[in-house]
């Protein structure tokens, strides 16, 4: 399990889990759950397009995740936050499926992009992945207090001169970058599980934001590592184990926190 190609999977999985934990925590804090679901679907269209014209899927993922994120950011200003997010989401999915319908390996590549593959990222991409991950974590660390304040009390944040619109857009870009890294491994439809489950669980258990984020990252690592083991043993899709693990972690946390308050 620790030899050959699996080494690569462990390395990639670890980076992905850390980034998903950190970024996901802010997603849950800001109540941007829906966006974290929609951006990966935008990325799906990009990866599909890239594979049809023969470009690197990572490039397609990155570009389309950014487009989806910025598109959501812009459209939201015109109101109907959830509805516009939903439409961007389905449009991306539909485009992706239309593009893939023109490719010869339709079925298998659709499945891999939607639900992930252990070997979704080759070892050649390890360095760009590390760079992307460091950028995400660094950006969150840099704007940590601003993100926290504007999530908890948007009015006070505005009054203190924070530009909400720019902060929002900036954060969506971070989500897009994190998505680009995560999609090949856990799949476009399941990035969201990793970004929401462990952080939501951590928030139920710990009230101090810094510690909660630490716990979120830890839980997300546990979920992804166990998913890798389980997928290796069973040959079943890794995305299934990631989402099952995330859900379990959340349910257990909810149980514990309810006991605490009674």
């Amino acid at each position: 399990m620790f030899s050959g190609f699996m080494i690569n999977a462990w390395q990639v999985g670890t980076i992905v889990a850390i980034v998903a934990g950190v970024v996901g925590f802010v997603v849950v804090l800001r109540g941007d759950v829906f966006a974290a679901h929609a951006v990966p679907n935008g990325a799906f269209a990009g990866a599909a397009g890239a594979s049809v014209v023969g470009l690197s899927p990572l490039l397609g993922l990155g570009v389309f995740a950014l487009i989806a994120a910025l598109g959501i950011g812009v459209l939201r200003r015109f109101g109907q936050r959830d509805a516009t997010t939903a439409l961007v989401l389905v449009l991306s999915l539909a485009t992706g499926s239309a593009l893939l319908s023109q490719s010869t390996q339709y079925a298998s590549s659709t499945y891999a992009l939607l639900f992930g593959e252990i070997l979704g990222v080759s070892s050649a991409h390890l360095i760009p992945l590390l760079a992307l991950g460091a950028t995400c974590v660094g950006a969150v660390a840099l704007r940590w207090r601003a993100l926290l304040l504007s999530a908890v009390t948007p009015d006070i944040a505005s009054a203190r001169g924070l530009r909400q619109g720019r902060l929002d857009a900036g954060f969506l870009v971070i989500v897009a970058l994190a998505t680009t890294m995560t999609v090949p491994v856990v799949g476009a439809l399941l990035v969201f599980s990793l970004m929401v489950g462990p952080p939501a669980a951590a928030r139920l258990l710990v009230s101090r934001p810094g510690r909660a984020m630490g716990l979120a990252t830890l839980l997300s690592l546990v979920v992804l590592w166990s998913a890798l083991v389980a997928a290796y043993e069973t040959n079943w899709p890794v995305g299934f184990f990631v989402s099952t693990g995330s859900t379990l972690v959340y349910l257990v946390a909810r149980r514990i926190s309810q006991h605490g308050t009674e």
């Binding site: 759950v33 829906f34 679901h37 499945y111 939607l114 639900f115 992930g116 799949g187 439809l189 399941l190 969201f192 599980s193 929401v196 489950g197 939501a200 079943w236 899709p237 995305g239 299934f240 184990f241 990631v242 989402s243 099952t244 995330s246 859900t247 959340y250 349910l251």
Partner: peptide, 16 residues
């Protein structure tokens, strides 16, 4: 979101 994510995971398995 949690419901959605659990369900999607199951879809992944069923489709596989």
């Amino acid at each position: 979101g949690i419901v959605l994510s659990a369900a999607t995971g199951l879809s992944a398995l069923f489709l596989y």
